[in-house]
């Protein structure tokens, strides 16, 4: 728009992953806003997009979803300026978000450099928990934890991240899982990655689900698609490999930046209540285009 001002426009919507409509609205909105945060931008306005089976579902449900979304927009300091609804057999909700950013400060999901550390800001496993929830296997406590994670805006993490001009790349971990998004970060470049499995924040309660085969379909697809780029070391626990491919809903930020500053950023995140943020690995010279999970 100007030399010092660009706009970001995003759109994201999906089908319910939790039963409670208000919570679903919150998760969908947090997920939609995350695209702007991951680029280092500031969301300013949003529009609702909703597909709703008006003939078979109570209008109260629609209201609750929109209220959940609105509350997250308020928390983000975003103004709801409109929206569009469509009658559909299957319920879907999300936002189109407009944000601002300095054109020179746009963070892309690629561009990680040798010497960078990788930071992940939320624990992994929400896809597996959502699958277990469908089968009535997940405990209430675990579901609550997952919901807290999915409704948490990436705003605080992004606000802290953008204080560092040395961030080289950032993405939010969503449908492709940690390793899928990490692979995108180095695909076609001349660097590789090491991810230390023991340092990655995960919901440890999901181990039994993984071992029982309670996993979403997307996980297998992610693994098939990216396994060629990944080397699993002998010290990585087998169940964690699946978790690293688990498709996330409203997942955390994956940030690549020089390792010294990464330590500082993670400490700041801990101070601000982003307890799970951790340095999970680094960008290396060899093997090029590959991810070693140690």
């Amino acid at each position: 728009m100007r030399e010092d001002l660009a706009i970001i426009q995003t759109l994201d919507f999906f089908t319910p992953i939790v039963d409670d409509p208000y919570t679903f609205g919150q998760v969908a909105a947090a997920n939609s806003l995350s695209d702007v945060y991951a680029m280092g931008g500031v969301p300013i306005t949003a529009m609702n997009i909703i597909c709703f089976p008006i003939n078979t579902m109570k209008i109260d449900i629609l209201r609750e979803i929109l209220l959940g979304g609105l509350d997250k927009m308020r928390e983000a300091g975003v103004l709801l300026v409109g929206g569009h609804s469509v009658e559909d057999d299957e319920l879907k909700y999300g936002l189109s978000v407009t944000g601002t950013i300095h054109p020179d400060r746009v963070l892309l999901n690629r561009g990680a450099r040798v010497g960078d550390a990788l930071i992940l800001t939320k624990p992994l496993g929400t896809g597996i928990i959502n699958t277990a929830l469908k089968g009535h296997l997940a405990s209430e406590a675990l579901v609550e934890k997952a919901i807290r994670c999915m409704t948490e805006l990436n705003k605080k993490a992004a606000d802290l991240m953008t204080q560092f001009p040395t961030v080289h790349a950032c993405t939010d971990v969503t449908g492709f899982g940690l390793l899928g998004h990490a692979a995108e970060m180095i695909e076609g470049s001349d660097v590789g990655m090491v991810i230390r499995s023991a340092s990655v924040p995960v919901f440890h309660e999901i181990k039994e689900f993984v071992e029982m085969g309670i996993m979403p379909g997307g996980l297998n697809r992610n693994r098939k698609f990216r396994m060629e780029m990944v080397d699993i070391g002998p010290n990585c626990l087998p169940w964690l490999v699946d978790v690293f491919f688990d498709p996330q809903t409203s997942g955390g930020l994956l940030i690549a930046m020089p390792s010294k500053e990464a330590e500082v950023l993670v400490n700041k995140m801990h101070d601000k209540g982003i307890q799970d943020a951790a340095v999970i690995g680094e960008v290396v010279t060899e093997p090029k285009g590959k991810i070693i999970v140690s």
Partner: peptide
Amino acid sequence: DTETAKENVSRAATSQ
């Protein structure tokens, strides 16, 4: 009839 179900059912059986 899906690849995912094939893998997950096999794993479920082995785990038990």
